[in-house]
Design a protein around this nucleic acid. Structure first.
Lengths: 360, 360
DNA sequence: GATGCCGCAGACAACGGTGTCAACGGCAGG
DNA sequence: CCTGCCGTTGACACCGTTGTCTGCGGCATC
């Protein structure tokens, strides 16, 4: 790998930039110490909230830091701490809304904590995947990482992080194996709720488009949905469940298959909104009216779902909240060597809009 | 602002993490120097591609670095350089696809360069906007930033960055005032092309939904479109141009206004795809068939455009390419104190799909 | 043969913080 | 009055790299 080099081609290094155009210099711990008449170690203690500083001294230094607009240099702190104050966001998912929602949550969760977020998309099918993430984590001495699904389901990755001493929190759709630094939604229950909603409307022939193998959410959503049906005395015949790939196109293909069954199902549950949008498209092409000829339920509650016509009944997947919770877990683990233990649950729930109605 | 503190509540700091679970230690420049029988300064010279190292020595050290899998510590380098190897991505745009496209491009552009990307959304209408970005840049001693529109149009911000000695590259829809660290598409020409396309199909009454004030792209796209019409002997009467807000809903409202004019326009150019989607919705509600009753052209070429039914004719806006180009500009400016001067142009072009046809 | 210059390499002090450990003043206990 | 301890503080080395300046051998020059 190439590496930044300031002296390539013998060019002179740029002049020091610790003064800006007004000649103001960023103040350092030494300035604070000198003006406060204490050693820099004492200032360091104040910065790190050490309890071994007299209250009066602490006050004085605090005020001085305020006055000088002093901010400790994260690089220098990191060097001494043997760790950076960066949090990595690791993802492998092409869906833009998905990434941005989670990212926004993570950014929110670190706000005001002094950490920054470094984004790192990756390809979990690549041969160099583990080496790549490992290099990233190690080079930057990351404080911790938040891992989005489906990468978060890779136990080899978490084992590697464990070994490297890098804190991590996974975002997932369901409980995963130990160790549990986890933020999860409960897709299973939410999907059962979706099934119940359709059952209560009186639907009997209900179809399902499952997610792709390789995603934990596939299992959760599918099984949750089936359980929900069963709880209402319904079952899901083999002919009424097909796999999708969480894409619009795969949703269309699945819908074509399902809507050609006889008798035709009166409702379709798609495991995400993208696929639900594909169902809309096929239904419209076939002249079916939603919700009267066909009820549709999605999953995710992304912006597209409220724009579909009619607006889509879907499960709200609290990605942003999960991101926030994951980041908060990391931030709280400052004094510890590992991320905060335990599973945080963020509830999902059904949002009923206009794509569901009793069957005709 | 709170600050990370390892000793809060008197908790002991975690043990050093420079060894992983196998006891392997990350090697340092000292290790390389010792094993190579040279001083660490010489190794540093090799890392920084200084020309003052004998080829033979350079070779030997290079091999050794490879063998030890040595990677210089960016924090320590940064400390000595008085600068980090982080590139900030500053944005203020709620559209997920927009952010992710640009972000992906930037990540692509820094790949293999040793830089990392730190994301920083902001709100340019907030009172603390400038102070916020300034603090971010200064605290992290950012190597440089890439600024997405519309924040990139804020000259106060770039002036501030200039003053802070922070490199920056703006991504924009058109040339901006000096200094020109700029990557631009040429929205104006592309919109003229869109107008020409409609004119050539034989449309005479063509309407336009402009972007919102406060966006440079509003002006470019609108004027480009008007120029394109004029070049074909057409004009844009005041009644056939309305403002939108780059949102789906605003597209709907604009379409309602425009489609109630008599005689009805036979084509609508929407300044982005979101608004074009709003036009589709309204047209469908009114029983108008696209493209036979109404031709629609959008701008952006985001995934939604190829899913609309019929697929939308739109201008491809090369956000990802622009992000890549911007990042590359920064990376290339390593030896310099400022980002590479000059304007990089990334062409946009019309993608003709099925939403345009001759008027009935 | 002394001198100067060139090409290369090393010693040493930064950079801006933290870890370690010793030292200080004051007060209670012997 | 000495001792020991506690609550605070500081001196100094260290984190892993680069900037500066000096040193040194060899070759060309005078």
């Amino acid at each position: 790998m190439r590496r930044p080099s300031t002296t390539a081609r013998g060019a002179p290094a740029p002049k020091n930039q610790d003064r800006d155009k007004q000649g103001k210099r960023r103040s350092t711990i030494n300035d604070v110490a000198r003006l406060a008449g204490v050693s820099k170690k004492t200032v360091s203690r104040v910065i790190n909230q050490s309890p071994f500083v007299k209250e009066e001294t602490r006050q004085r230094i605090h005020e001085l830091m305020q006055e000088l607009a002093y901010e400790p240099d994260p690089q220098a702190r990191g060097l001494a701490f043997r760790r950076s104050f960066l949090i990595g966001l690791i993802y492998d998912n092409p869906n833009a809304q998905f990434v941005v929602n989670a990212q926004q949550g993570v950014l929110d969760g670190v706000r005001g904590s002094g950490f920054e977020v470094v984004v790192h998309p990756c390809n979990r099918n690549s041969k160099t995947f583990l080496a790549d993430v490992s290099a990233f984590v190690q080079r930057q001495k990351l404080f911790g990482v938040v891992i989005l699904p489906p990468v978060s389901e890779d136990n080899k990755l978490t084992a590697l992080l464990e070994e490297r001493g890098c804190r991590y929190v996974r975002i997932a759709s369901a409980p995963v194996d130990a160790p549990p630094h986890l933020v999860m939604s409960n897709d299973r229950d939410a999907c059962a709720e979706a099934a119940a909603h359709l059952a209560k409307l009186g639907h009997k022939r209900i179809a399902c488009i499952a997610g792709p193998p390789g995603f934990r959410s596939r299992k959760e959503r599918r099984e949750g949905f089936i359980e929900g049906l069963r709880a209402h005395g319904l079952d899901l015949p083999a002919g009424l469940i097909v796999d999708g790939a969480y894409t619009y196109e795969s949703g269309m293909e699945a819908a074509k298959v399902l809507l050609s069954r006889t008798p035709r199902p009166t409702a379709i549950f798609a495991s995400n909104d993208e696929m639900a949008a594909g169902v809309y498209r096929v239904a419209q092409d076939m002249g079916l009216e939603i919700p009267n000829d066909l009820s549709v339920v999605g999953f995710d509650d992304m912006p597209v779902s409220s724009r579909l016509q009619p607006p889509l009944t879907t499960v709200h997947w609290p990605l942003e909240d999960m991101g926030r919770a994951a980041a908060a877990k990391l931030v709280r683990s400052l004094g510890e060597a590992r991320a905060e233990d335990g599973v945080s649950r963020v509830p999902s729930s059904l949002v009923v809009r206009s794509s569901t109605a009793p069957p005709r």
